[in-house]
Design a protein around this nucleic acid. Structure first.
Lengths: 247, 247
DNA sequence: CTAATAGTGTCTCTCAGACATTATGTC
DNA sequence: GACATAATGTCTGAGAGACACTATTAG
């Protein structure tokens, strides 16, 4: 049972399949949604699952995830390159796939509200589901999805990436909606405004003061995502734990 | 270039080797140290590297990491089970190993000040190095080590795991030393005390008021790690970014 | 005594929560 | 006009930074 630390003893080497799994999130109609696909083959044939696939011989997991994101959403690589994609963690339970040894690197992607995945190609069986209202998924994807949701919620506290859910130009109301949707809480609007506007580089007012109406209230000013990446000090969730679990 | 999302087309399957790499941290003499091993074979023969090894056919990456931790430190599995071990991220660049396709799941381990790894077995060539003062490491281990340091620093802000660097019973001075060492800053002692003691479940005073002397000052009260896992509100680093990078 | 470390108390400034008020649009 | 949403202003309380001060040990 002794393996040379970084040696590559033939007897110690075991071939694994390596895949990526994606939790692609978006906010639609004030609710958090995740992109799922139907499985066409056994095991778990007919069940819903996170999109994903094999890492090819000459690509990194990151590249594979970006490629799958484009394939499953039916969008061009150029478009998809602007989306936030972040590695979550790797799932390696020996029995997570009943057929063979598969290690999966999970990623979370945050995208603005997209049209329903259009038919054609791999996206034919892809569909948006409300997160938290999904049927039991294939493999360990329920766990991955829950972990991804937790992580995104925590990331909103310490980073500016809520803007990743918004289109290029957005109102502060839309940005607040992102927080409320992901966290499942209501925030005080004046306080939210103050926090966002006093954090340097979080958002950037759009010059020409064109305004956009969301319904029939007063038109809101438009903003773009700023250059800042981290949010300091953080925007903490009201009461309760910072995360659902701490793994 | 189209792969069925979760299908297992024979042509799409590529065998990978899967390894774990460990960044084992400890605090010795007020400086952050990391455990390194010398490589016995090419490539990078004679260079220092993070300890690690293959994931075996019937174990998860987590189990492999725990096993390697025991092997490299020369400690028993029982002992090692008490140490904090946390998955960092997975490194999958196609060229990270010059010989073959190797995907590595990186872990960070936090251990109390241990004796120098005793000779015998795999630990024969293991040694503590001061973090930040290491020679260029093998493979992409410099990057992994830097990522690990960043992550640990960030984790100290929002979690109670600084106690993982301390022995079972410790003084608040020792706990503060952990923060100062990992962050490379000095903290105000009264304020640090207040924060730690008013956070429920961070530490727990040891009953029998035996005190321990660190040198020739007043003896300090002893504490144990509390039940809390998260630190809310966080203990933020003074000025500057929350992390070196945001990857 | 001095030196060194442990522990307490207090002032102030920043910032977040709560919430009243005004502004500007649709119907 | 009513209604809805956007934006501003103000009060307050929690908590962190700064720092003075006391306590207890070794020499």
């Amino acid at each position: 049972m002794s393996t040379v630390p970084d040696g590559y003893d033939p007897y110690a080497f075991t071939p694994f399949a390596v895949t990526v799994d994606l939790a692609v999130f978006t906010v639609r109609e004030g609710r958090l949604h995740v992109l799922l696909v139907t499985r066409g083959e056994d095991p778990y044939k007919g069940r819903w699952a996170l999109p994903g696939g094999f890492v090819l011989p000459r690509e990194s997991a990151e590249e594979a995830a970006r490629r799958e994101l484009a394939e499953e959403t039916g969008l061009a690589q150029d478009t998809v390159c602007g989306f936030h994609l972040e590695q979550l963690r790797t799932y390696s339970d020996p029995d997570r796939d009943p057929r063979m040894r598969v290690v999966s690197v999970a990623y979370a992607a945050l995208v603005p509200d997209l049209p329903e995945p259009r038919g054609g190609g791999d996206a034919a069986h892809a569909q948006w589901w409300e997160a938290g209202a999904t049927e039991p998924l294939a493999f360990d994807h329920d766990r991955i999805l829950a972990d991804a949701h937790d992580r995104i919620g925590a990331r909103l506290e310490y980073s500016c990436l809520a803007t990743a859910f918004c289109p290029a130009e957005f109102t502060l109301g839309e940005l607040q909606q992102v927080y409320e949707t992901v966290w499942g809480v209501e925030l005080d609007r004046p306080n939210f405004r103050r926090k966002v506007l006093t954090t340097p580089g979080f958002v950037q007012a759009v010059e020409g003061p064109p305004r956009r109406t969301g319904g029939r209230g007063k038109p809101a000013a438009l903003y773009r995502a700023g250059a800042a990446n981290a949010l300091h000090p953080p925007l903490l969730r009201p009461e309760g734990r910072p995360e659902g679990r701490t793994s």
